[in-house]
Nucleic acid binder design. Structure first.
Lengths: 333, 333
DNA sequence: CTGAAAGCGCTAACAA
DNA sequence: TTGTTAGCGCTTTCAG
């Protein structure tokens, strides 16, 4: 509030008997300054309570030491781990972390990027909703790293949903299920496409039937309609687009007096907070979310580094594993 | 990545045949410019793809149009609503929103504040862990608004825990409970103090016994020890510091074969995501979290406004209400 | 290794 | 209402 004139490089310089540029170097380019001089400058700075102004620094240098992460919705616990991983990594590197929400809208996402463009060095886009072309376009002007989305030519960190989906199919097959129904997430969701393709292929290999229904809103509230649709389909196993939806389905099935897993099995994706204490506890595909967030930041950090060369974009694929709980069991009959 | 020379106010000014300051005004001070001129400037700016650089603007004006919210832990769903409310309000005002985590540490919190000080116009401190003195100190140099914490002389938005705690006591009393045990959160938590005081007073009024045990880590994992301690205490009702802890307690009780609410009732605070689908569904104190976040940002926004005068700090108290679910029932015997 | 000087892009007096 | 003139606080050539 009060603005008792901030101490600047000049104040420190005068007091230390050096030039402002030396003070600057002492902070941002330690090697370019004599160790003794630097020590002295730092002491004076400390004494005067000097604090570099990141804005002034960024204005001149072009580097903001800040990065932004854009997430569709904060209320989805699925993003917890990723956010935390990203924040931790950024923090560790002394990078300021901006979190933005896109409200599940590609337009909002795009606007956020344009808006923040000058204030950050790069963006982590989690489960981006933007069309591929738009994203590629933006990537030419901005530093982007994707999480749980892959686009040719762009760096990304994803959790292996293909292999994970196969694990799900194998699990269900081993329990004697002959058919499954995938209750899909948003139509334009890259993840939904991935999951369905793998599920479909895996089921074919195992001689199982597989159908896709939906899209359903990937939230607990979407579970009602999804469950009802699944029941009509006659499949003995439901694979829900994510845990939120799966939990909603579990609820609806309980309301309707359908026994899980006695009459029907339910599987989710993400292993979110709550998946282990809903009733019945949910069988779901888990992955190192935190690691994914960390990796994305890492990518941004190294991209901006001295190499300068834009080698082929890094793509990190993290292993997933199926956590078997109480919502899956032997096929009935 | 590529830096094809950004268009600046000067480019626009030249092209529009006006001075740079006019361009500046057209954007940031529309009234101080002729409507026609402004229109023209905006058109030219649009055509050239001009985008104001917020850093340069902030450096000169001292206003960053950015604010930061500091939260102890992103993994606690309790903060969802508050974060979302704050972000939405900021977004609506065209303010950039920075989210930081303090890892439940007062030191980290303080460091974050110092670190971001120059880059933001104010801070929303959610469930701040800092000692009162430190906070008051910081408030003299920074623009602070507290959420779920009250300190004399500082603006805040809190959910009414006192009245809420009384609601809990009344509910339990009406079910015939003669004693309750409060399983407390962190010792230095302001909320924990509030809750216990109100619980204690309410119980006394109703002629109920009340004991406090703990502190316990306010997480699901803390529930094991908490539940065991509660059982030993012999109380027929448990009030947990928050829902995370309550859910952990529910789990432990289930493991030990203790019937809830048949043998013992359990109440939580916050009505977090999951409180409605754990087993049994949790009776808990709910409040308008989102509103709290919104209010805190609102405070920051108006504080920085033209009034200039620092009237008595605003304190917003939001109503809470008890959501009765299946974890509470008549006292046994 | 260090200093001097010139801005980064914008806004804020002060004139006109 | 608009233009002119200085910077905001820092980094960065370029000399020395």
């Amino acid at each position: 509030m009060s603005t008792p004139k901030r101490t600047t490089v000049y104040d420190v310089a005068r007091e230390a008997g050096v030039a402002a540029s030396t003070v600057s170097r002492a902070f941002s380019n330690p090697r370019r300054v004599n160790a003794t001089t630097r020590q002295h400058v730092l002491e004076v700075a400390e004494r005067l309570g000097y604090r570099p102004n990141p804005l002034a620094s960024a204005l001149q240098s072009g580097h903001t030491a800040t990065l932004a992460m854009l997430v569709p919705d904060i209320a989805n616990p699925h993003f917890f781990g990723t956010i935390r991983g990203a924040e931790r990594r950024a923090s560790a590197a002394g990078i300021t972390f901006i979190l933005g929400f896109t409200e599940e809208s590609a337009d909002t996402e795009r606007n956020q990027i344009e808006r923040l463009a000058r204030s950050v060095d790069g963006f982590v886009l989690a489960s981006s909703r933007m069309p591929e072309a738009t994203t590629v376009d933006l990537a030419s002007e901005h530093n982007l790293a994707l999480v749980n989305r892959e686009i040719d030519g762009l760096p990304s960190a994803v959790i292996d949903n293909a292999s994970g989906s196969h694990q799900i199919v194998d699990h269900l097959a081993s329990l004697g299920h002959r058919s499954l129904v995938y209750l899909s997430g948003p139509h334009h969701s890259w993840l939904a496409g991935q999951r369905w393709r793998a599920l479909h292929a895996g089921a074919a290999q195992r001689g199982m039937g597989a159908r896709r229904l939906g899209p359903f809103p990937p939230q607990v509230a979407g579970g009602g309609a999804a469950a009802d649709a699944a029941l009509v389909s006659g499949a003995s196993a439901i694979v829900a687009h994510n845990d939120l939806l799966a939990i909603g389905i579990l609820r609806r099935l309980a309301e309707r007096g359908v026994d899980v897993p006695g009459e029907i099995s339910v599987v989710g994706y993400d292993d979110i907070f709550g998946a282990d204490f809903c009733a019945p506890a949910l069988t779901t595909l888990a992955g190192p979310q935190e690691e994914a967030g960390r990796a994305a930041v890492e990518i941004l950090l190294t991209k901006g580094s001295p190499t300068g060369v834009q080698d082929s974009p890094r793509r990190v694929v993290l292993p997933s594993h199926l956590v078997i709980r109480d919502s899956t069991g032997p096929a009935p009959g």
